[in-house]
Simulated assay, not measured.
Amino acid sequence: MNARLDRIRLGRFAGTGERLARALTVASVSFGRGLLWLLAAIIVGCGIWMLLPLSRGSSAEPVKSDLKADLAAVEPAAPEDAAVVVSPTAEVPASAAADLDHLRISSQTWRRGGLGSKALVTFTLRNDNDYAVRDVEIICAFVRRDGTPLTARSRVLADTVSMKSRKTFARISVGYVNVNADQAKCSLVAARRA
Results as ranks from 00 to 15, higher is better:
V63N: 11
D128C: 12
V86W: 00
F142H: 14
A94I: 04
I48Q: 05
E61L: 10
A97D: 02
A82L: 06
E75S: 14
S28N: 05
G11C: 04
A21E: 06
F169A: 02
K68P: 01
I42F: 09
T16K: 01
S165A: 12
V63K: 12
S162I: 04
R144M: 15
Y131H: 10
T160Q: 06
W37T: 11
T168A: 04
L20D: 15
T148D: 08
A94F: 04
L39Y: 03
N178L: 08
A141L: 11
A69K: 08
L36T: 06
A158I: 05
A158T: 12
S59M: 08
D99T: 05
A94K: 02
Y131A: 15
V92Y: 05
A141Q: 13
L38G: 07
L54G: 07
V85Y: 03
R126Y: 10
R193D: 12
R166S: 15
R134A: 14
R126C: 06
A90D: 06
C186Q: 06
S55W: 07
K64D: 05
A78K: 09
V179W: 08
A194Y: 00
K118C: 00
D101K: 04
C186H: 10
T25V: 13
I43V: 12
G175Y: 03
I172D: 04
F142W: 09
S107I: 01
R134M: 12
A72P: 05
S95G: 08
L24H: 09
A98F: 01
D128N: 14
L188C: 04
R22K: 11
T168W: 02
A3F: 01
V29K: 02
V189H: 03
L71R: 11
N129C: 13
G175N: 02
P53E: 04
R166I: 03
Q183Y: 07
D66P: 02
P62V: 08
F123G: 08
R7G: 15
A27H: 00
G147T: 07
L125K: 05
F31Q: 14
V92G: 01
L67M: 06
L20T: 14
R4I: 10
D146E: 11
D130Q: 06
V174P: 04
R171E: 15
D128K: 10
Y176I: 08
V143F: 12
S117E: 14
F123V: 03
G32A: 10
